[in-house]
């Protein structure tokens, strides 16, 4: 399986340097379609997305990405990620609060 990266040209160029083949440099208006396409790609195991881009997506898609296990979506550029809400919902308390 492969690693995929979706985001602006400035965000993805470094990942291309690291040898990632599935790198999608997109403009904000193409972001949604590209992410949906990558989420449906069976060959992708990990999808890295820039956090500000993630905030621009519709809540429903964000939720789908948060729940997705294949591929796993890793937001890059933030210290908490999408796990905080999920943990709070399942455990009933905010375990990230101490940080």
């Amino acid at each position: 399986m492969e690693i995929a990266v979706v985001g602006s040209e400035e965000f993805v160029v470094g990942f291309r340097l690291a040898g990632i083949k599935k790198v999608y440099a997109v403009t904000p208006d193409k972001l949604l379609d590209t992410i949906v396409k990558v989420l449906d790609d069976q060959a992708v195991g990990i999808l890295a997305v820039h956090t500000p881009d993630l905030d621009r997506l519709p809540a429903q898609l964000r939720e789908r990405m948060m729940e997705s296990v294949n591929p796993v979506v890793i937001p890059v550029g933030v210290e908490e990620g999408d796990m905080r809400d999920k943990v709070r919902r399942a455990m009933g308390i905010d375990l990230y609060k101490s940080r």
Partner: peptide, 28 residues
Amino acid sequence: EATDAFEKLVETVVKAAELETTMKKLLE
């Protein structure tokens, strides 16, 4: 140096992917 830094970042992303998937499945 930039390539080196991004390679290390990707390595961390792969480690995080395993742990976060495990966490998601455990939480479910």
